[in-house]
Each structure stands twice: as C-alpha cells, then as structure tokens.
Write a protein that binds this DNA or RNA. Structure first.
Lengths: 106, 106
DNA sequence: ATTGTTCATCGCAAATATACGATGAATAAA
DNA sequence: TTTATTCATCGTATATTTGCGATGAACAAT
C-alpha cells in the first residue's frame, strides 16, 4: 500500500492523452481526415459526410477545437474549419515519440 | 439511442479511434510507457507507480488488453504484462499514416 | 487446513461523453 | 422588413467511463 502522490501524472502523459482522446471517436477521425485531405472546409461539408445530426457534428468540432487540433474561422454565414498546423505537428511528434518507445521486439 | 449505424464509418477510422481511445487517459499512457521501458512487468509494479487503487489499475489494464495493445501472462500468483508487439506495430503504423495525411503546412 | 499474496471482478456512485431536437445569433438576399 | 441559410448552444435522455471498497479465485507456503 505504498505512497501514492495524488495528482501525480506527468505533464507529457496528460498532454498526449488529451490528443489521443480527441482522436478516440470515429466521427472525429473522419472529420480530421476530411480536413487534412481538403485542407480546409465548411462545417456544412462535414455534416454531409457523416451519419450524424448537425448539432452532434458541431459538438465534435468543438471538442477538436478544444484539443487544439483544429481551428475555425468565421466567414459569414459559414465557418471554415482547418487543421491547426502547430498543434497537429506537436501531436504527431508526441505520438511518434511514444510509439517509438519500444517493446524490444520491433 | 446513442449509436447510429456503426457501418456508416470506415473500418479504418473505427480501428484507429479504438486505439486512440485506449491511449486517451494519462494512467494508460503511463502504464504503456512503463511496459515499453521495462519490456514486461507485474501488475503490482504498475500499481505502485500510479496514484490509483489496485482495482482501478486492473480496470485500465483490462481496457488495454481489450484494445489489443497489451497482453497478460499468468505466472502464479502474479500476472506479467507486456506490450503486444503485433498490435503495437499496427497502431503505430495507423497513427503514423494518419498524421502524415497532411495539412500542407508541414 | 490455514494463512498470505496477487490479481480480477462485482456493485455502486459520480462524472463524462454521445446524440438529437429546438432554439438563438449572425448574416445575406429578397 | 421579412425570409432563408449557416452554425452554435441549450436542454434532455441515455450510455459509457472512471474510481473505489469489498469480495472472490487461484496459488504458495506453512
């Protein structure tokens, strides 16, 4: 029963987990894939691609924004969404570093 | 009413989302980091490293097993956990391919 | 047989996530 | 002004996740 420091996760583990969590739903993967392929697109374009109501898509977009992986620019009356290059790069690097910590066998 | 058609998503998006979701908690990141560093270790070793009760750690281990990222071998009275090299490699490749779909800017 | 160790599972509570319809805000066009 | 379009947010329902104590299963050592 040893000593557990409460709240004792490493900052990098928390950051990586946040990025991973944002990727943890197929709808959000699909959204990011679309944004990456098309560079940028409007919210409505995304709604058309997914089997979800507009409100639900908007919610997934919000989560992706909070995670930092995307950004949204208002171009009335639409909103243009793009991948956030800086955080995308950061997530990519952290994820890559994590998977390269390696089970000797690879 | 939560799930709509799961078939509406692409199989690869579902698989990647499942891996990502498994990584979506700092405790599970920490567990995987420890397993990767030490190659293999006992459940008890992991419990000592985390600020969580044994039951909770066991639950996180179960999720990681279900995701396929780790495997557990019984060596009475202990259980030795290791990263599953095959699925680890698969997750690594899928994640890498995903992040290399690219926002032109990188 | 009894005891101790290690770990999984059960049962429960609280917190989060997922989804949708309805509504609101902002803007353009008539 | 009125109408239509686009998107966010609110309210609500349900599902899933997270966490812990208690208990159980399997085994080793006495």
């Amino acid at each position: 029963m040893a000593h557990k420091e409460i709240g004792a996760y490493h900052e990098d583990d928390i950051r990586l987990a946040r990025f991973a969590k944002a990727l943890g739903h197929p709808a959000r993967i699909a959204i990011l894939r679309q944004l990456a392929n098309m560079n940028c697109c409007f919210c409505g374009d995304i709604v058309e691609e997914l089997p979800l109501a507009q409100a639900t898509v908007s919610q997934h977009l919000k989560e992706l924004k909070v995670s930092g992986l995307i950004q949204g620019n208002i171009e009335p009356p639409k909103v243009r969404y793009c991948i956030d290059p800086e955080n995308w790069k950061k997530a990519k690097e952290m994820m890559s570093a994590f998977f390269n910590l390696n089970p000797s066998a690879l």
